[in-house]
């Protein structure tokens, strides 16, 4: 049984004449404990796949399964205990008027945990923030610290699958390294399954075992990371992507 099984997913945005076919016939299978990367440029529909999976987009058809359960139109509490998401921009994903403590406590209460106080402290420790950060507001935190809080929030319900939407693209490289290491450690510790979206092949290559390349809403190629390193892609667009990111990396 796969952790995530997406079959012939189509997603649309807008209505009437403006209805835009954002994701076309996408199929993905991600095994339990695997780390899968979705690569593409802006507008390729890679983030849309994630957002549709968690129920933030309504206009879709196809078949999506998580842990063997078919997803309907509405997601229930049990789903959100299994799947959580980390957003791209840590400056936009935290409520500006809520302290770290409020953010985490609320999430824990929503999921019905009783020992909220202990859990908040434990979560902060897990993401490498001390108790000193507990009562700070987002504007008192740096970008990397905010992203750690966002990761703590995603970890709060003890999910098994984490969807990562460009989790480091808004951060400096040195901070990116810290966050990527944290994500690597967390995956090892909790046996998480990652579905990661990024435009940065270096990051994807570091984090993921298998990748799918998206262009104009379609998956053009799926390959494992070894073949990616050997640059043995078959599709012209993948080759182009690999070459241009090599150009900027080396």
């Amino acid at each position: 049984m796969s952790a995530i099984d997406i079959n012939a997913l189509n997603v649309w945005f807008g209505e009437g004449d403006d209805r835009n076919h954002a994701v076309k016939n996408v199929s993905l299978k991600i095994a339990k404990g695997e780390s899968f990367g979705l690569v593409g440029e802006s507008g390729s529909g890679k983030s849309t796949v994630l957002r549709t999976l968690v129920g933030l987009v309504d206009d879709w058809d196809g078949r999506m399964e998580v842990d063997g359960k078919v997803l309907g139109r509405k997601r229930d509490g049990a789903f959100y205990k299994t799947v959580q998401m980390v957003f791209q921009d840590p400056y936009a994903s935290l409520h500006p008027r809520m302290t770290v403590d409020q953010v985490l406590s609320e999430v824990l209460k929503l999921h019905g945990f009783k020992d909220v106080n202990d859990r908040v402290n434990r979560l902060l420790e897990q993401v490498g923030l001390g108790g000193g950060f507990r009562f700070r507001y987002p504007h008192q935190l740096s970008g990397g610290q905010r992203q750690r809080v966002a990761i703590a929030r995603a970890l709060a319900p003890e999910p098994r699958i984490l969807l990562l939407d460009e989790p480091t693209s808004a951060l400096d490289v040195s901070v990116q390294a810290e966050i990527l290491n944290l994500l690597t450690d967390l995956r090892a510790e909790f046996g998480l399954t990652y579905l990661m979206v990024s435009h940065d092949l270096g990051v994807i290559g570091h984090m993921c075992e298998r990748i799918a390349v998206m262009q104009f809403g379609e998956i053009v190629e799926e390959l494992d990371v070894e073949n990616m390193r050997k640059l043995s892609a078959t599709h012209a667009y993948t080759k182009h992507l690999l070459e241009s990111s090599l150009g900027s990396v080396r």
Binding site: V173, Q176, A177, D200, G202, H206, R229, S245, L246, V249
Partner: peptide, 16 residues
């Protein structure tokens, strides 16, 4: 060193 490299993978990234 903190930049992840596609061609030369490392298990952990160096932290500054």
């Amino acid at each position: 060193n903190s930049v992840p490299d596609l061609v030369h993978p490392r298990p952990r990234l160096e932290v500054l």
